[in-house]
Structures are given as structure tokens and as C-alpha cells.
């Protein structure tokens, strides 16, 4: 129930934030009667209503219907553990975005592949280094050489 109420609260916050931005959209003489803010305001109101209904349901539904409580089964990770682990993967992703303009596509890709593999429990080894370099090389061949995508590059060109 706590999780459901948190969910409702977050949805309500999103609706409020979205509404406040929507209400500041400029309205020009080229706009129609509904205007650029028309549907966004409706969406915000619908989301707020749904969030409140979800909250009400979380409170009242157990009274109407006994549902099996969704307790974590033995194999399931706890919420905190899940979020911590997910945060690490996210951090690796952010690292890629920050480093790639400096170090270039090829080198950053080696780092990312190695970092992810290590994070997922592989040990530092020659094998890991080989796979990371070979992997980055094949991505580089595929995207830069074959597809001609101008990836951020250390050497400028």
C-alpha cells in the first residue's frame, strides 16, 4: 500500500509540474481556439484525477477484496538493493556521455564494456581486456567504418 501511495504522489507531482509549465506556453494570434496549452492542461487534469483514484483504490480496495499481499519472494532482490545496482549501471551510462567527447568513441567504448563486465562480476583478466578491446573494435568497424556515423573521435577527423 505504501508503494501504491508513493506512486500516486509521484504521478500527482508530475501532473502539477507539467501543468505549471503548460500554463506558461505562449498563445499567439496564429493559435486556434483550443490553443497550444489546451490539450496539455487536459492531460495534466486527467493524470491528477487518475493519481487520486489510484490512491483511493490503494486505501479502499483491501476492504472490498482481499488480495494476496505482494510480499517479496525468496529470489527477489530487495528494493534498496535493486535501486543501488540499477544506480551503478546508470552511473556507467552517465560516465559514457561525459567521457566520450573527451576520449573519443573507441576508447570510451572499451572503458564502458570493461566497466559493465566488471560491475556484473567478471574478474579483471587478460580475457576481459581482450574482449573489451575486440568488442569496441567491432562496434567501431560497424558504426564508423561501415555505417559512416560520425562518432565523437579523439583524433578530430
Amino acid at each position: 500500500m505504501v508503494r501504491q501511495l508513493t506512486c500516486s504522489a509521484i504521478l500527482l507531482l508530475i501532473a502539477a509540474g507539467y501543468y505549471s509549465v503548460a500554463s506558461q506556453i505562449t498563445r499567439s494570434a496564429l493559435a486556434d481556439e483550443i490553443g497550444p496549452a489546451g490539450l496539455p492542461v487536459v492531460y495534466a487534469l486527467v493524470l491528477a484525477t487518475v493519481a487520486l483514484a489510484l490512491a483511493a483504490k490503494a486505501v479502499f480496495r483491501p476492504l472490498l477484496l482481499r488480495t494476496a499481499d505482494a510480499t517479496a519472494s525468496a529470489g527477489e532482490p530487495t528494493l534498496g538493493f535493486l535501486l543501488r545496482r540499477a544506480g551503478g549501471v546508470f552511473a556507467i551510462g552517465v560516465g559514457y556521455v561525459l567521457i566520450v567527447p573527451l576520449a573519443g568513441y573507441f576508447l570510451t567504448l572499451i572503458m564502458v564494456i570493461a566497466a559493465m563486465a566488471l560491475y556484473q562480476g567478471e574478474r579483471t583478466s587478460a580475457r576481459l581486456a581482450t574482449i573489451a578491446v575486440a568488442g569496441a573494435a567491432s562496434f567501431w568497424l560497424l558504426f564508423v567504418q561501415l555505417l559512416g556515423i560520425p562518432m565523437p573521435s579523439l583524433w578530430g577527423a
Partner: peptide, 18 residues
């Protein structure tokens, strides 16, 4: 799994950038 996840991540970075 560890390597697969690493390569999927790299693939997503490359593809989305494209």
C-alpha cells in the same frame, strides 16, 4: 550475462547516437 549486458549497453549508446 555480464558480457552480454556490456555489449547491449554499448550497442544502445552507438545506435541512439546514430
Amino acid at each position: 550475462k555480464a558480457y552480454l549486458m556490456a555489449f547491449i549497453y554499448a550497442l544502445i549508446f552507438s545506435g541512439v547516437y546514430s
